[in-house]
Design a protein around this nucleic acid. Structure first.
Length: 674
DNA sequence: GACCAGCTTATTTTT
DNA sequence: TAAGCTGGTC
C-alpha cells in the first residue's frame, strides 16, 4: 500500500486512491481537504506519474503556495516544484503565451487588472454619449458575464434594462480597445485558452497529453468559463478530480456558479462521488448548529458534518442593546478569554458580513486595549504610487498600452493637460492603426507647431524612447527601472504630495519594494522579462503583503475573507436581518445583476460558524444606527427554529429576571439600613 | 493644480 | 452619519 494512503480515514483514503476517471470530492468544512489533495498528488507520483503531468488548479495564489509547501514537505522540494500548481488565470496565461509562441506570433501582451478595465470603460463612456451616468462596476460585471458565457457582442439576449443596453453598447468597443492595447483582462485568461483548446484538436491533445491528471480545488467557486476550460482540458482522458463544498459557495455575486459542483456528474458522466463528512475541527455544539443552519437550503448535495471531537461549550447568542453595546461586549469577552481562560489573542477572530461593522468594533477594541489586526483591506497593488510606477514600466514594454500611457502622461505634472490629451486621442482614433503614443510621437502635426504642450510631450517621448529598449533588453532590469523612475521625477512629486515625511517614506518604500520584487524575480527566473514580471504582478498581487501585520492579535475579518481559516474562538457579529442576510440581497438595486440571493447568505453564515474550533459566539444588537438612524433590528432568519439545547442566550437588552431585581433591591435596602 | 462645497450613496473581493 | 466624488473657483 502506498504510504500516502496511511493515516487517512476511510473516505479520505478512497478519495486519494481513486486515481483514474472523474471524481468529485465533497469536502465539508474542516474535513481535511488540503490533506486529501496533497496526499492524492503524492500518491499519483508514487504510482509513477511524473510531477510534470500533474496540474492542480486553485482559486488563489495563496492557496497554490500553501499547497506547494505542503507537497514539498511530503515529496521533496524538487518534485513539488515541477508539478504545476497554479490559479486558473496563471495557468491560462501560460497556455496563451505558449500557444502564441508556437504560432510564431508576437507573444507580447499585458494583463489588465480591474482598475485598468474600469479605466478603459470610463474612457469609452466619455466617448460614447449614453445620455446618463452609469455605475462602471455594474457595466463591467455585465460585460464580464457575457465574456464568460462566450457571447460575442452580436449574440446578446435582448433586454430593455438600461444597464444591459449600456453595457451592450460598450461591449464591442471594449473588446476593440483591449485588442488595440494588446491587453487581456482576467476573463480572457480563461476564455481565450478555452477557445484555443476547443478550436483545435491538436492543441487540445497536446495539452491533455502534457497534463494527464487534473485537480481543481474550491470547485464551488468556478464559473461557467472555467468549467468549459476544464472540460476542454480533461474531457479526453477524464482524469479530472474536483474538490469543493457546495455549502461554501459564497462567490455567486462575482460569477461563480454552484451548479458546477451540483451537476459535476452531468459534465463528467460516470463520476465517482466521495463525501468527506468527518469534521476534525469543531466541537459538537458548533457542528450541530452548522448542520441545522445549512439544512434549510434547498439545492445542495445532502450531507452532514460529523464531529470527531468531543465535549465543548454551548454556542452563545448575545443580544446587545445597540451596536455599541454589542462591540463592547465583544471587547470584554475577548479580554476575559485571554485573561481568565488563558487564550492567546491570536486564537480569536471577530467575523462580520460587512466592513462597516469593523469600525465600531475597532473602536471598542482599542478602548479596551485589545490588540487586533484587520485581515484583508487595501492591497499593495492598489496603491497609487505603485500603480504610477508600474504604468511607466508597462508603457516601456508596450507603447500601445493606452491605459498606462494615460496614467503616466501628466504624472508628475508636466503640462500635458486633459484638452491636449483629448486632441491627441481624437487624432489617434480618427487615424486607422495609430495609437495614442503614435499621436505623441507626431505631436507637431497633430497639435500644430505652436502648441505649448509640444516640449513636454517631446520630453516624455524621449524618456520612453531612451528607457524602453534598455528595459526590453532583459539585463539588470531592476537597475534600469530605477533609473527610469529617477528620470521621471516621480519621487519628488510623491514627496510633495505626501502629507508628512513619514508617509512619504512609506510610500516610497512601496515603490522600492516593487523593484526589490523585480530584482528577486530576475534572480529566480531563467529568462526574465519586464513584461512577464508585470503580468505576474497583476496576477500575483495580494500574496506578499499580509506578512507585515503583528502576530498575537485578534483577527477582524469579513465572512468572505474568513473562508479557509479557522480559530479556536470565533465571534460572529451582526446576526440580524438586513446584515446577514444583507439588505442588498433582500432588496437588490436596479443595477444589480441577479445574485444567488438568500441561499448564498445562508452559506455565508455557515462558513462563519464552521471557522470555530472550540468556542462560538453569535451576537446581534436590538437596535442599531443605520445611516445615522436608529433602527429596531430583527434577529437573523438563519437563527430561527434552532434546537434550543445547544445554546445559551444572553440578552443584554432585556430586563433582568425578577429574582435578580428582588435580590438587588434587598441588597440595596440592607446597605441603606432600611 | 489645489482646495472646497455640495451632492450622493451606502456588500461581499480574487484573479 | 460620513466618506467619497463632482464640479466649481482661485
Amino acid at each position: 500500500m502506498s504510504r500516502w494512503l496511511q493515516g487517512l480515514n476511510e473516505e479520505q483514503r478512497q478519495a486519494v486512491a481513486a486515481v483514474d476517471g472523474p471524481l468529485l470530492v465533497l469536502a465539508g468544512a474542516g474535513s481535511g481537504k488540503t490533506r486529501v489533495i496533497t496526499h492524492r498528488i503524492a500518491h499519483l507520483m508514487d504510482g509513477g506519474v511524473g510531477p510534470e503531468a500533474i496540474l492542480a488548479v486553485t482559486f488563489t495564489n495563496k492557496a497554490a503556495d500553501e499547497m506547494r509547501e505542503r507537497l514539498a514537505a511530503m515529496v521533496g522540494k524538487k518534485r513539488a516544484q515541477v508539478a504545476t500548481l497554479s490559479t486558473f488565470h496563471a495557468f491560462g496565461l501560460a497556455l496563451l503565451k505558449d500557444e502564441t509562441q508556437r504560432r510564431r506570433r508576437n507573444a507580447r501582451l499585458v494583463v489588465f487588472d480591474t482598475g485598468d478595465q474600469l479605466a478603459c470603460l470610463r474612457e469609452l463612456l466619455r466617448r460614447v454619449d449614453l445620455g446618463r451616468t452609469f455605475d462602471l462596476g455594474s457595466l463591467l460585471q455585465r460585460i464580464s458575464g457575457w465574456k464568460n458565457a462566450f457571447l460575442a457582442p452580436g449574440e446578446l439576449p435582448s433586454s430593455d434594462d438600461p444597464y444591459d443596453e449600456a453595457a451592450a453598447e460598450l461591449y464591442p468597443r471594449y473588446l476593440e480597445q483591449l485588442e488595440a492595447y494588446a491587453a487581456v483582462d482576467f476573463d480572457d485568461l480563461v476564455c481565450q485558452p478555452t477557445k484555443l483548446l476547443e478550436g483545435s484538436a491538436a492543441c487540445r491533445e497536446r495539452w491533455a497529453a502534457r497534463f494527464r491528471y487534473v485537480l481543481v480545488d474550491e470547485y464551488q467557486d468556478t464559473n461557467a468559463a472555467q468549467l468549459r476550460l476544464l472540460r476542454a482540458l480533461g474531457g479526453g482522458h477524464r482524469n479530472v478530480c474536483v474538490v469543493g463544498d457546495d455549502d461554501q459557495s459564497i462567490y455567486g455575486w462575482r460569477g461563480a456558479d454552484v451548479r458546477n459542483i451540483l451537476r459535476f456528474g452531468d459534465d463528467f458522466p460516470g463520476a465517482q462521488v466521495i463525501a468527506l463528512e468527518r469534521n476534525y475541527r469543531s466541537c459538537p455544539p458548533i457542528l450541530a448548529l452548522a448542520n441545522q443552519v445549512i439544512a434549510a437550503n434547498p439545492e445542495r448535495h445532502p450531507k452532514q458534518l460529523r464531529p470527531t471531537r468531543h465535549g465543548g461549550v454551548k454556542v452563545r447568542l448575545v443580544v446587545g442593546t445597540d451596536g455599541e453595546s454589542e462591540a463592547r461586549w465583544v471587547a470584554l469577552h475577548l479580554k476575559q478569554a485571554v485573561e481568565r481562560h488563558g487564550r492567546g489573542w491570536g486564537e480569536a477572530a471577530v467575523l462580520y458580513r460587512s466592513n462597516i461593522l469593523a469600525r465600531g468594533l475597532e473602536e471598542a477594541l482599542r478602548e479596551h486595549g485589545v490588540p487586533y489586526r484587520v485581515f484583508g483591506g487595501a492591497a499593495f497593488f492598489d496603491r497609487k504610487e505603485v500603480k504610477d510606477v508600474s504604468a511607466y514600466l508597462r508603457l516601456c514594454c508596450n507603447p500601445f498600452d493606452e491605459i498606462a500611457l494615460r496614467r503616466v502622461i501628466n504624472t508628475p505634472a508636466r503640462g500635458i493637460g486633459p484638452v491636449t490629451v483629448a486632441k491627441l486621442a481624437a487624432w489617434a482614433e480618427a487615424t486607422p492603426g495609430r495609437s495614442l503614443f503614435a499621436a505623441l510621437q507626431q505631436a507637431p502635426e497633430v497639435l500644430g507647431a505652436a502648441d505649448r504642450a509640444l516640449a513636454p510631450i517631446a520630453e516624455l517621448v524621449a524618456l520612453i524612447g531612451k528607457h524602453a529598449p534598455l528595459l526590453r533588453g532583459g539585463g539588470a532590469l531592476a537597475d534600469q527601472g530605477r533609473m527610469l523612475i529617477e528620470a521621471t521625477g516621480l519621487r519628488g512629486e510623491l514627496e510633495r504630495s505626501s502629507p508628512s515625511g513619514k508617509i512619504f517614506e512609506r510610500r516610497w518604500g512601496h515603490v522600492l519594494g516593487l523593484f526589490d520584487g523585480l530584482a528577486a524575480y530576475c534572480r529566480r527566473v531563467e529568462r526574465p522579462s519586464l513584461a512577464d514580471y508585470l503580468n505576474r504582478l497583476a496576477l500575483f498581487s495580494s500574496g506578499d503583503d499580509d506578512a507585515e501585520g503583528p502576530r498575537d492579535c485578534v483577527t477582524l475579518c469579513t465572512l468572505h475573507g474568513a473562508k479557509g481559516l479557522e480559530f479556536p474562538l470565533v465571534i460572529m457579529v451582526g446576526l440580524e436581518e438586513g446584515l446577514l442576510p444583507h439588505d442588498r440581497t433582500l432588496n437588490p438595486q436596479a443595477n444589480d445583476l441577479d445574485s444567488s440571493g438568500v441561499d448564498e447568505e445562508r452559506r455565508l453564515c455557515y462558513v462563519g460558524i464552521t471557522r470555530a474550533r472550540d468556542e462560538l459566539v453569535l451576537t446581534r444588537a436590538a437596535r442599531r444606527l443605520i445611516r445615522g438612524r436608529a433602527q429596531d433590528r430583527q434577529p437573523s432568519r438563519f437563527l430561527e427554529g434552532l434546537v434550543a439545547e445547544d445554546f445559551e442566550l444572553e440578552d443584554l437588552s432585556a430586563p433582568p429576571p425578577l429574582e435578580d431585581v428582588k435580590a438587588m433591591v434587598a441588597a440595596l435596602r440592607a446597605r441603606l439600613g432600611a
